[in-house]
Design a protein around this nucleic acid. Structure first.
Lengths: 346, 346
DNA sequence: CTGCGACATGTTGACGTCAACAGGTACAGT
DNA sequence: ACTGTACCTGTTGACGTCAACATGTCGCAG
């Protein structure tokens, strides 16, 4: 029979090709291509015949061939660091959803550790990967020595402004200011801060903004407690703060650390919010069920993801750089972990 | 000059090709290919010359062309549902890491909602996507009417055994038994259960195993409290259980629901573990910092992800199906949320 | 009845890569 | 010297697709 066996072609798995469809439908390959791509100028009857043939043989266009021919891959690369962090995960989720909706595939490249080499390796991967653009979800500033392949469009999800690429992010500074001002307005003398990791720009922005807000209100700026996003580091910070009666208000750079902090305060017999008020950052799903329910800064990861994709697609289709910075507003969600201090100076 | 401008080729972005490297190095394209793929029989000097040429022009092999030629894409598709769930995220993270280490790319396809159509759409995507195999992280049993493209290797991360594909998962049944027995051994009369969503096989396995364990010990099986993995649903369940003095031990199908439950119990003045013991499932990072620290079942998502990739790769390279089921053992982590009941029948 | 635009289809070739084949050279064993 | 084997390199063609360029047909204005 005409159906030749597995032998012959290079790869093992060979689905039906455009040519097969063309033969069955009695048209040229080009017409099949036209139908597949929804081009104009195809007779309705012909189109039907082709579609039928496609269905019978189970035709699927070969992305590799298409990409080779057109130079377009309909795919965007996402470089992510530490998928397990709340923000990254949510953002990735939103990015994936947005990308799929416009027919783009997601090429996920994890950065295994935060050495320069790992980051470079990730970029190299994407260099030979078939992607039309890159979204960087990496939470480190270590992108210096790294060369982005050729003129690949790039969008960075980060609050730093030191790249030449468009940036999309939650408005960290605004959120941190909201959190700090909220505590001051409640009557607290000053606000302590448990920071995120040094290398994270988000963390840095939150810290800077907290400090600036305190200074703007003429308050003392207490020493920063170091943290690394983890619940454990929040717990450590909590143990250190619990001993100090002066501490009546704490702003932690994320919710997970806030959880650890709450736990440490409980253990040490400091009540929240009666003795100490706590504000987090992220508004992860669980935050509303902390004990007590956590006042925190809500971030719109969905919106960030969607905007990142939008921006990247626009970069891909346009020729010139548009260097806009897209900050998504954050908002304070007041729950039960904050209250006026017990002994207000009055 | 020889360097022709942007015009000419189809796509806009054209990096250096094998031919360019060949010209510079003064060899044939085939030799460049050999160097790129580490083939034997290339003279050391020649290899150096080629490598140098590669570096000068910044050559990166074109994955699309390679895939077209070889029929191999060095890429695996991951179909994931609800990225934001703890287990899925961790597993995806591990999968990505494992895949990258062996030079495979990850093609992430989210299932936007849990309708059949959405699942089918995801598969279709991967059908024309360039992937060598698929890992299914979808937490639903709705894979019935779905046709997996051709003979694409598939690995399912799920506890159901109803597919013809290899399965890798944490040993849910074992974990649930451990949790239940732990509570019985502490002296509790019986154990209540807050279940995960109906459609989830993991949830179902945990529930079935909990029930079987109770029956094996001749205990009364209390009615199941419905949940949907969310903290909120755990809270609801907690409110319902808090009123019943009979309830002294609860096993929730995941940690997030346990958090909600703890909160509800606190609110209603039921102390944990003095009045009620609670066991979760997942051992998410935060669990150790709940109030009180949560006794829970630890899952090795890393191991599951690694095994899933291993299995898939083996499927890709071998011709026949190996239908083994790889269950990764779980273990109980005892913290402070469990204790003997106050009034042991003695 | 000529000509021109809108419609409909087909032919050719190239995207970048690698498998298959086809030389080669060098050196061992006979 | 002759054969065989290990090594090294080049030539050719095809993977499946689509852009560019043919050809057509049809209907309608002039």
């Amino acid at each position: 029979m005409g159906t030749d066996s597995i032998a012959g072609g290079p790869g093992p798995r060979r689905g039906a090709s455009q040519a097969d469809v063309a033969r069955i439908a009695g048209v040229s390959g080009q017409t099949v291509s036209r139908v597949a791509n929804g081009a104009r100028y195809v007779d309705a009857a012909t189109r039907e015949r082709v579609l039928l043939a496609m269905r019978t043989v189970g035709y699927r266009p070969n992305r590799a061939a298409r990409a080779l021919r057109t130079g377009r891959f309909q795919s965007i690369g996402v470089i992510a660091f530490e998928l397990s962090s709340v923000g990254t995960t949510h953002t990735l989720d939103a990015i994936a959803a947005a990308a799929v909706e416009i027919g783009y595939a997601i090429n996920l490249v994890p950065v295994l550790d935060d050495t320069d080499d790992a980051v470079r390796a990730a970029f190299n991967q994407l260099g030979e990967q078939a992607v039309d653009g890159i979204i960087i979800l990496v939470e480190t500033h270590r992108l210096d020595g790294v060369t982005v392949p050729e003129g690949l469009p790039v969008v960075v999800v980060d609050s730093s402004a030191q790249y030449d690429y468009p940036i999309v992010d939650n408005d960290q500074a605004h959120g941190a200011r909201l959190a700090t001002e909220h505590l001051l307005e409640l009557g607290h003398e000053t606000v302590w801060h448990v920071a995120g990791p040094e290398l994270s720009f988000s963390a840095r922005r939150r810290r800077t903004s907290w400090q600036a807000t305190l200074e703007a209100h003429g308050r003392v700026v207490p020493p920063v407690l170091p943290g690394d996003w983890s619940t454990g580091s929040g717990y450590e910070a909590g143990l250190r703060l619990a001993g100090d009666e002066q501490v009546t208000a704490v702003f932690t750079a994320n919710d997970q650390m806030a959880l650890g902090l709450l736990r440490a305060l409980h253990e040490q017999g400091r009540r929240v919010p009666e003795d100490v008020s706590v504000v987090g950052f992220d508004d992860m799903e669980e935050a509303a069920y902390f004990w007590p329910p956590l006042t925190t800064v809500h971030q719109s990861f969905d919106e960030v993801g969607r905007r990142a994709v939008d921006t990247l697609i626009r970069e891909i289709h346009s020729t010139e750089h548009e260097e806009q910075e897209g900050l998504v507003p954050t908002r304070l969600v007041v729950r039960a972990s904050t209250a006026p201090p017990r002994s207000t100076t009055a």
